[in-house]
């Protein structure tokens, strides 16, 4: 169930006078059972990239391979529906997609479309709602009566209900309070533990280092870097400035230490790691 991009280029309005190239020669592999974070400044092509993961956008040239399905420019809509059953996609502000009379019905929408029987759909909707911590007394309410945070979770359940092997989220933490953000990171870890491949876009580097196994850095439609968080976040500070990204808090702190003459052997990812490194490397001074 790995995902591979081979020489993918993408333009909006390809072949017209208004063609607008967005992605350039993307070659990436996203490993199965792992969490991959995509980072990069606004407009770098992150959202366009992930819309290729379930065929909402098809590569103008090149191909995207998801498991045994190959998506090219000529892939038919019917094939793409198969792909979409495997990929749960959570968009930015997914609460905007809610429409049904009750929370449960809304979450059942996906499974029913993908051919589940009514009671199967109900069951998987219920377990998805439990997974995202939506209390049972809300299930029969209208989704429009819920609070913003609850709506977000219902919408996520909607994407998870068809039990996809791949879960893709576009800035899932945007606009959540700290508690909601922590719950979200826990959800990502749970999904990974359940054997799923998770891809998410984030602007919060601390989220990235806390859950991601792999990081893809996008800039101007190119892949600027790809690797483990330890590798990527150990890059030169000037490189981070060139791609307009911040370091995680621990990394920022380490940079300030270095500027004041306290250098560490490498850049720590988390605050715990930072503390350990300071203890070990400066134990005898």
């Amino acid at each position: 169930m790995a995902i591979t991009f081979e020489q993918v280029n993408f333009s909006y309005g390809a072949g017209t006078t208004l063609a607008n190239p967005i992605l350039h020669d993307i070659n990436i592999t996203i490993a199965d059972h792992q969490v991959t974070a995509i980072i990069g400044q606004t407009g770098s092509g992150k959202s366009t990239l992930i819309q290729h993961l379930n065929g909402l956008l098809k590569p103008t040239t090149g191909q995207v391979i998801v498991d045994d399905l190959i998506v090219t420019n000529t892939t038919k809509e019917k094939q793409l529906t198969k792909l979409r059953a495997k990929v749960g996609m959570v968009f930015q502000f997914p609460e905007n997609q809610l429409f049904a009379n009750t929370v449960l019905e809304d979450v059942m929408y996906g499974p029913l479309n993908f051919g589940y029987k009514t009671d199967e759909a109900k069951q998987s909707a219920q377990s998805a709602l439990k997974m995202v911590n939506v209390a049972e007394n809300l299930w029969q309410k209208s989704p429009f009566e819920l609070s913003g945070g609850q709506m977000r979770r219902v919408a996520m359940a909607g994407a998870l209900a068809s039990n996809p092997d791949i879960v893709v989220m576009d800035e899932p933490a945007a606009g959540l309070d700290p508690k909601g953000q922590a719950e979200l990171l826990a959800l990502v870890s749970n999904l990974k533990e359940a054997g799923k491949l998770v891809v998410f876009i984030s602007h919060q580097m601390d989220h990235v280092v806390s859950v991601a196994d792999q990081v893809i850095v996008m800039q101007d439609g190119h892949v600027a870097a790809q690797g483990t968080p330890a590798d990527v976040f150990n890059r030169d500070i000037d490189w981070f400035k060139s791609v307009n990204l911040d370091l995680p808090r621990a990394g920022q702190f380490a940079e300030q230490l270095r500027a004041n003459g306290v250098s560490l052997s490498r850049r720590p990812l988390t605050l715990a790691e930072l503390a350990t490194m300071i203890n070990e490397e400066y134990e005898h001074e």
Binding site: E77, R84, A85, F91, N96, Q97, G110, N113, G158
Partner: peptide, 18 residues
């Protein structure tokens, strides 16, 4: 824009117009 976004979201959940 909004239509496109919602359409993408529902297509991801298996909606089909055709």
């Amino acid at each position: 824009d909004e239509t496109q976004k919602i359409m993408n979201a529902q297509k991801s959940r298996g909606m089909s117009f055709s």
